[in-house]
Amino acid sequence: MSASFKAHHLLGIKDLHLDDIQLIFQTADNFKEVINRPIKKVPSLRDVTIVNLFFENSTRTRISFELAEKRLSADVLNFSASASSVSKGETLVDTVKNILAMKVDMVVMRHPMAGASMFLSRHIHAQIINAGDGTHEHPTQALLDAYSIREKTGSLKNVKVVIVGDILHSRVALSNILLLQRLGAKVMVCGPLTLIPKYIEELGVKVETDIRKALQWCDVANMLRIQMERQDIRYFPTLREYILQYGVSKQLLETVNKKIIIMHPGPINRGVEITSDVADSNQSIILDQVENGVAIRMAVLYLLAGKKATA
């Protein structure tokens, strides 16, 4: 059997076709079985070289991508901006063109500026996977989140998902909203109004400032981290006040008379957005998300690389 994958890059969820999304999920099912075998490696990408360009710190995403690449037998180059010529003043396009001149086939990039991967895609032909661009999009995270929900609920149709916390600075939130809605889920955002972007209702999401009401409404709660590093001004008086208003604890969950699925894209600030007893409870699928992340990234890499090589 064979299928066609329409996308040339994975820059964001916005321009991803619904058929492509279904194909990514279907392929991820196969890779999830592969990574649970005694020997977890397949030779599909053995003639592909991939560079991981990280202009911003990352643990989970970088390891997850690197593992996915290695499990597919690709050759992997790791690049972090702090230890490179970028600090000598080289531009993004020059850096990437130089790397590609060494016969690299694909680029996985994280960058602090929104739109960086889109900009790069206009200058190079190699396939690009956006691993997070500023506060814009983080498509593979959204794919693995939706995949993890689908695994628990069977389908995303009419599943109610609330995204809690720092929506303003979160690329995970935007990609999640776009993808979940595309798959038929209902989305709400919840947090202090200062951390919710103006006009977000125009995306068709509900806005709620009371965490209790939000938990009452939802089937799934995706808890985001408060991004201290992106907060140029104070968006709430103190962290303690935020915890009192929006932190999710066991006691709070017990007031809701249904079992909500708890998600977190990591890294967790234990005791801030969720308490340890919630993070480690059987309601939490945080570690399933991490496992699925490798399978989803393998699927994306496999499908993008699968196009007939032109060279």
Partner: peptide
């Protein structure tokens, strides 16, 4: 056997796997 094929990147369409 999809992920072990020797014609990956050499066909117009991408081979889709079945269950193992």
């Amino acid at each position: 056997i999809t992920f072990f094929r020797d014609d990956f990147r050499r066909r117009e369409n991408i081979p889709v796997a079945s269950e193992t």
